[in-house]
């Protein structure tokens, strides 16, 4: 009755999926924050408006 293969699939893809997506987001955010910090340190002028 219950499709156990589907259950395992949803469970597995869910646990892994959330961790992977959040992990990937973390890495990309960390890289972009490093880049921003690098630029902000380079452009030490008072008018560093970009956005």
């Amino acid at each position: 009755m219950t499709d156990w293969n589907k259950v395992i699939e949803v469970f597995g893809s869910g646990v892994l999926g959330v961790l992977l997506i959040m992990g990937f987001l973390m890495i990309l955010l960390q890289i972009s924050f490093k880049v921003i910090e690098y630029f902000e340190r380079c452009i030490e002028k008072p008018t560093s408006e970009k956005a």
Binding site: T2, K6, V10, F11, V15, M22, M26
Partner: peptide, 28 residues
């Protein structure tokens, strides 16, 4: 940004509950 992983970690509980609910007879 490492705290993103903690935000993800807590979601594992959702899937455990999902599993438990199926054992108790709910559909997917």
């Amino acid at each position: 940004p490492k705290t993103l992983l903690l935000g993800a970690g807590a979601q594992v509980g959702l899937y455990v509950t999902f599993f438990a609910a199926i054992l108790l007879g709910f559909d997917l």
